[in-house]
């Protein structure tokens, strides 16, 4: 069971995404064996979280078992978090929303008790990994996914060190500067049980993200944890559970 912790649907203003559709993502997932992907709609990351969250839920309904939804919480708009059978957790993007991750404005997101995936960018005033340590200490029972593991190569090791003593923080490894070698390094530093596969597709290419883990110099047990075992544990998913459909996801 391969679970992608970090995906998107839709368009983004900065550049061209040739295929931003859920159909295209599912076709690629089928080609390479990805069971399910947690997605937020890029409209939700941008100006309209409520409508973007609705779109993501609709995609999850259209493709049962293939998409989980990270509901975006915009702290300025106080986005309603509706929950639902497809919801994996809450997505925060401190850089786009220009609100520091450790700002109390995010408390409603943590109050849901759901896992939180947040963009994490080294040296960003909004989402530097040091802020993940602060928030993780505040909410030690909430799984907190450090998106991009700090984003820049010069910050990967620092991110791992900063959150090492906060076991509820997991390093999610998507990003254009990540390498298979760095994934192996991070697994060696914090343990493979705290590293999660994410692709950032459709923003980035799903195959590149999966290939980094598939061909990284890891042991097979480490690879299995990173590719899905860890996230399945966080989300309470098990491939043999009778409520799961073909994708191994709760339907």
């Amino acid at each position: 069971m391969i679970l992608d912790a970090h995906g998107h649907l839709g368009r983004w203003p900065d550049f061209l995404i040739p295929d931003p559709s859920p159909e295209g993502l599912v076709a690629t997932m089928d080609r390479i064996g990805v069971t399910a992907m947690g997605v937020s709609d890029l409209l939700a990351v941008g100006p309209d979280a409520a409508e973007g969250n609705r779109r993501a839920a609709e995609a999850a309904r259209r493709f049962p078992g293939r998409f989980g939804v990270w509901q975006v919480y915009n702290p300025h708009h106080r986005t309603p978090l509706t929950g639902g059978p497809h919801v994996w957790g809450v997505k925060l993007h401190p850089d786009v929303h220009e609100c520091r991750l450790d700002d109390p404005l995010y408390e409603p997101a943590f109050a849901t008790g759901l896992p939180v995936l947040a963009h994490g960018q080294t040296d960003s005033p909004w989402s530097d990994p040091s802020q993940f340590a602060v928030v993780a200490a505040r909410h030690p029972t909430i799984p907190l996914l450090l998106g991009h593991a700090g984003l820049w190569p010069y910050g990967f090791a620092r991110a791992a060190t900063l959150v090492a003593d906060h076991p509820n923080v997991l390093l999610e490894i998507c990003g254009s500067k990540m390498t298979g070698r760095w994934i192996a390094r991070l697994a060696a530093m914090v343990g493979a049980e705290r590293v999660l596969f994410g692709s950032d597709a459709c923003f980035l290419d799903l195959r590149v993200g999966l290939g980094r883990v598939t061909l990284a110099p890891l042991t097979e047990p480490e690879r299995a944890l990173i590719l899905g075992g860890n996230l399945a544990g966080i989300l309470g998913l098990h491939p043999d559970h009778p409520d799961f459909d073909h994708g191994g996801q709760r339907s």
């Binding site: 960018q121 820049w152 090791a157 500067k177 060696a188 530093m189 950032d200």
Partner: peptide
Amino acid sequence: PLLETSTRPETSSPPEAPGSRGVR
């Protein structure tokens, strides 16, 4: 060894151009 990478100098400049805020 890989674990020693945590002690290396962090002197690299950010690799992406201005305007990369909030992106990957």
